[in-house]
Design a protein around this nucleic acid. Structure first.
Lengths: 103, 103
DNA sequence: TCTATAATTCGAAATATGTCGAATTATCAT
DNA sequence: ATGATAATTCGACATATTTCGAATTATAGA
């Protein structure tokens, strides 16, 4: 049986986390803000939960739930800073996912 | 909104197809048989449905269902040859999925 | 044409997921 | 302390998914 893991998370759980359109959108937003040289490289400018969900038309509780799923799957990082909780993405996750599909 | 598609399939549907352990296993088996130079490069030696599911302990109807899902998501190819239905994987799918995660 | 094999379709049942609103917790500013 | 803002937890409900067995279809061979 395939037992492929990335950072101790079974790969199918990672894909499950990415299999919902809202969650994929959230992940995608973090992808496009955390590239080296752009926004989230700088710690002070990470997205907080509320910002991340802007324009997505989902309840705050749903947003929270989705981000927790992404976090549980090891896809994103979360950390409270004051009233906000900041989210970001470790580039190594992208590298390893990319490598999985590498021909 | 993220509208990332690969071959006309929304990316979240591809990940949904890969989000089930059995389906991921099936996909993985095809990945490890269709690399250039190995098995499935040669048309005569592609896996058929029954072979692909060997040892997975799922009913034939379940196996069929899962492969259909992978096919609907554009992840694998299927074609009847006699009594069997052959399955294989186009390398371009791997390339594009890998590219999505490329930092 | 009849039989065996490979695979699919169908219907049903159990389980999981996505979503919301209400209540709660955490933190900051006054 | 009190109030305001950000986020989470909880419970409920509707919908989707996974799985099976039985019935069906497709094909090859005797």
């Amino acid at each position: 049986m395939s037992n492929y893991h990335i950072n101790n998370t079974p790969l199918d759980e990672m894909f499950k986390a990415l299999s919902n359109p809202h969650r994929l959108e959230l992940f995608y937003r973090l992808m496009n803000c955390c590239s080296p040289g752009t926004k989230c490289g700088v710690e002070e400018e990470r997205f907080c939960v509320g910002e991340l969900g802007e324009g997505m038309n989902i309840a705050p509780s749903t947003l929270s739930h989705h981000l927790k799923e992404l976090h549980r799957a090891g896809l994103i990082q979360m950390e409270r800073r004051g009233k906000n909780v900041e989210c970001w993405l470790e580039p190594s996750v992208l590298t390893e996912l990319s490598a999985f599909f590498k021909v």
